[in-house]
Amino acid sequence: MRKVGFMLYPGYSAMSLVVSTVFEMANLQAGETLYGVHMLSVHGGSIRTSAGFQILSDRFSSEPLDLLVVGGSIEDPPPEALALLRQAPHFARRIAAPCTGALILAEAGLLDGRRATTHWMYARGMAERYPKVKVEEDRIFIADGPIWTSAGMSAGIDLALALVEDDLGIEVARQVARKMVLYHRRSGGQSQFSTLLELEPKSDRMQAVLIHAQRNLASRLSVEDLAEVAHLSPRQFSRAFQSETGQSPAKAIEHMRLEAARAMMEETNHPIDLVAQQTGFADRDRMRRAFIRSYGQPPQAVRRAARA
Rank of each mutant, 00 (worst) to 15 (best):
3 K>C: 02
85 L>T: 01
223 V>D: 14
66 D>Q: 04
262 R>P: 00
121 M>T: 13
267 E>K: 11
290 A>F: 05
198 E>A: 14
210 L>V: 09
143 A>P: 00
89 P>H: 02
269 N>V: 11
55 I>T: 14
276 A>D: 07
71 G>E: 02
51 A>Y: 11
21 T>Y: 02
304 R>Q: 14
134 K>P: 00
204 D>A: 13
271 P>Q: 08
237 F>H: 10
306 A>V: 10
40 L>I: 11
184 H>L: 06
289 R>V: 13
56 L>K: 09
127 A>P: 09
62 S>F: 06
298 P>V: 04
171 E>I: 10
4 V>E: 03
24 E>G: 14
72 G>T: 01
128 E>R: 15
19 V>M: 09
158 D>W: 08
139 R>P: 03
199 L>F: 11
143 A>C: 08
48 R>S: 08
6 F>Y: 12
106 A>E: 07
287 M>S: 04
124 R>F: 05
142 I>D: 00
143 A>N: 11
277 Q>S: 12
240 A>C: 03
142 I>L: 10
76 D>G: 08
125 G>W: 05
234 P>F: 05
215 R>M: 09
307 R>N: 14
9 Y>S: 07
123 A>E: 03
194 S>D: 08
78 P>D: 13
161 L>I: 08
107 E>L: 03
50 S>E: 13
101 G>Q: 02
263 A>S: 15
247 Q>A: 14
120 W>C: 07
294 S>C: 02
251 K>A: 15
188 G>E: 06
182 L>Y: 06
157 I>V: 15
307 R>W: 07
60 F>W: 12
300 Q>I: 12
259 E>Y: 12
46 S>T: 08
41 S>K: 05
50 S>V: 04
148 W>F: 11
69 V>S: 03
167 D>F: 10
221 L>R: 04
65 L>N: 08
45 G>I: 10
287 M>L: 13
271 P>W: 03
81 A>N: 09
177 A>I: 01
144 D>E: 06
117 T>Y: 01
86 R>P: 03
268 T>K: 05
120 W>I: 10
301 A>S: 13
54 Q>E: 12
272 I>T: 14
136 E>I: 01
229 V>D: 10
168 L>T: 02
136 E>T: 00
32 E>C: 06
198 E>N: 09
132 K>G: 13
230 A>D: 02
124 R>W: 06
253 I>Q: 09
157 I>G: 02
179 K>E: 10
245 T>G: 08
255 H>S: 15
263 A>P: 05
64 P>V: 07
26 A>H: 11
59 R>Y: 00
201 P>I: 04
304 R>S: 12
198 E>C: 02
298 P>G: 13
110 L>R: 04
175 Q>A: 14
13 S>G: 10
217 L>I: 05
251 K>Y: 07
148 W>Q: 01
69 V>R: 05
